[in-house]
Design a protein around this nucleic acid. Structure first.
Lengths: 177, 177
DNA sequence: CTACAATTCGAACGAACGTTCGAACTTATG
DNA sequence: CATAAGTTCGAACGTTCGTTCGAATTGTAG
């Protein structure tokens, strides 16, 4: 709270005039963030019906928000489970809806392509891929969200075996010793 | 430190007889953890030369340690970047070696299969998949590390499209509303 | 202008934290 | 047995943290 006070220029007591507690402030930030991501996603999904493209839209939507707000999301990730009781369960509800949507996208894909896989593991693997970027993403080296979304989308859908991005591939100079 | 004192039954001051500071204790825990994972990995890789199987061994080794020590690793993930200066950079060195090994495995695979992809993105995506389990893994619903490693290995190598685990697949009953 | 509400803040409170210190207790050595 | 070294702990220290309170300032309405 003292850091926030310094950063905003408002006194510590002033902050408490607007937010009744640190916990409630965190709640409002989390709710706003996850609601926004969810709203953007729903709006984009309305326009596309092909199952593969819908999965790619999910990934792109997620990565764009994460890349654009990566410093904030690093903090949110760190405070992920710190909300308790009603506040915490309201956030959990929003996340659950997000999870369900992703699960639905994968199961639609599964049905159309007539393939079989553990959908829970698949959703969680995908979440891992796209959430983890808060630990490593650097705009300089990793390109924009669109490029990343294409790479990750292809890895997730077809694996590294068949990855072949139309010319845009940058092979890194690193070689293991 | 007071929590540790309560959990171990040793007094707060007693802990400081063995560990000079909280930061140094965290350092020792991190160093022991990452060194162990790295040592196990190297030992297992010595026995296998096929690039695909080596990647699968990497995944299995990582998941087995994470599943066996998931409560501890949740804490480690939370304190991931809290070590500063020399202590922090010594840990960073170990992690970098781990990263390089994984990168090498992927590039060997790439060379043998004559395929092309952004290896940094691939490594980070894989790390995301296998590190993220500390947020969701439950032994009851998700099976053991071996089953998970096979699922994730296949997703990473071939994508969800061609996932087809020999009979062991459990399709979940969830359907999105 | 007056009067009242809305806003801002310095200063403090109590709790929690990392750490230290000296005294007490235990163990090993001769 | 005495002595010293190794081990344990209660109690306190200084600091940081979340929060509150009353006073001061600003904005608004009649």
């Amino acid at each position: 709270m003292r850091d926030l006070s310094r950063a905003t220029g408002m006194s510590l007591a002033g902050l408490y005039y607007y937010f009744e507690s640190k916990e409630r402030l965190l709640f409002l930030i989390q709710k706003h963030t996850f609601t926004t991501i969810l709203k953007n996603l729903k709006s984009r999904l309305e326009m596309v019906s092909d199952p593969e493209r819908r999965i790619r839209i999910f990934i792109l939507n997620h990565l764009q928000y994460f890349v654009a707000n990566r410093h904030g999301l690093k903090v949110l990730a760190h405070e992920d489970e710190s909300l308790k009781n009603e506040l915490g369960s309201e956030i959990a509800d929003i996340k659950r809806e997000y999870y369900r949507i992703c699960l639905g996208l994968l199961e639609d894909f599964q049905r159309v392509r007539k393939i079989d896989f553990n959908s829970r593991t698949a959703v969680m693997s995908l979440f891992g891929m796209i959430n983890w970027i808060y630990t490593w993403y650097s705009p300089r080296v990793d390109g924009d969200a669109l490029a990343l979304a294409e790479e990750m989308g292809t890895i997730f859908l077809h694996g590294i075996v068949s990855v072949n991005l139309k010319g845009r591939v940058r092979t890194k100079r690193l070689r293991h010793s």
